[in-house]
Amino acid sequence: MESGAEQITVFSLFLQADPVVKAVMLILAIASIWSWAVAVDKWMQFGDLEQAARKFERDFFSGRTVDEIDDRGGDKPRDALARVFAAASREFREARRTGMPTGDAANLLLARADRLMQAQVSRELGRASRNLGVLATVGAASPFIGLFGTVWGIMNAFTDIAEQQQTNLAVVAPGIAEALFATGLGLVAAIPAVIFYNKFSGDLDRFADRLETFSDEVAARLSRRLGER
């Protein structure tokens, strides 16, 4: 009994599996590794976004003027909030070169600045959400891929029973084991992917709210600056 138990290992299950089940196992293993790589990358990305956003917000709400913040941002800002701010400040600088607008011209300037910030917010969210679809796909598809391997493995088990005309454990166990192993791999790939997808989707929603709120703050500050003139 011990020798039979020792033969049924993860490695032996893979080597002895049917080619179709073996392909399913490989697909699920690659999907799991890929989802973990994406999860680590997104974890670091959202951490960097949070750190950069806090730093820029400290500068923005520290009492500095629009011009001072604009000078610190440079021509090529590196973080999301700075790029949103730069989208509006560039429009403000262009308008100021021909004289500070008033009345309807000022309202048009604010409308253009707001549209530019909204466009930049969309680009930032698109950049932040990149590869989240991988986690969603792995989380949704892996259980079904594993189920396909399970069904195929059970079919092989019944085929072995029919060929050998025996129903003892030695005949049934390998096929059932590889079938259940495919199911397990599907769950191993899917569960972390779903957890990470939900986590990063929440982070993305909070980041979107932060960008929207910040763009409203920038618009209010520009409006106040135009009102002072």
Rank of each mutant, 00 (worst) to 15 (best):
E57N: 08
A5E: 13
L147N: 04
A113T: 06
A220H: 05
L49A: 11
W43R: 07
N131W: 07
R72W: 06
L81Q: 12
G133T: 00
S35N: 09
A31G: 09
G133A: 15
S32H: 04
R93G: 01
D71S: 06
A86I: 12
L108Y: 05
T102S: 15
P143H: 09
F14I: 12
A170G: 10
K42C: 06
Q16L: 04
R224S: 10
Q16D: 05
D18L: 03
F207M: 11
D67H: 12
D59A: 13
G153A: 00
Q164E: 00
S129M: 03
F14P: 01
E68P: 05
L110F: 11
D205E: 08
D67I: 13
L125V: 08
D18V: 01
G73Y: 11
T9S: 15
R127N: 13
R83H: 08
R115F: 11
L135S: 10
F11K: 08
F61G: 05
T150I: 02
T150K: 05
Q166N: 15
D209W: 09
L49W: 02
G153E: 00
R229E: 15
M155H: 01
L222S: 03
S122E: 15
G202P: 00
F11L: 14
G73P: 03
A53W: 02
F196M: 08
Q164C: 00
T9Q: 10
P77I: 10
L180I: 03
W152Y: 02
G133I: 10
N107M: 09
D205V: 12
R210K: 11
T183A: 15
M155T: 01
L15V: 08
F92I: 04
A179T: 04
A162N: 07
R229Y: 15
F148E: 00
A128Q: 11
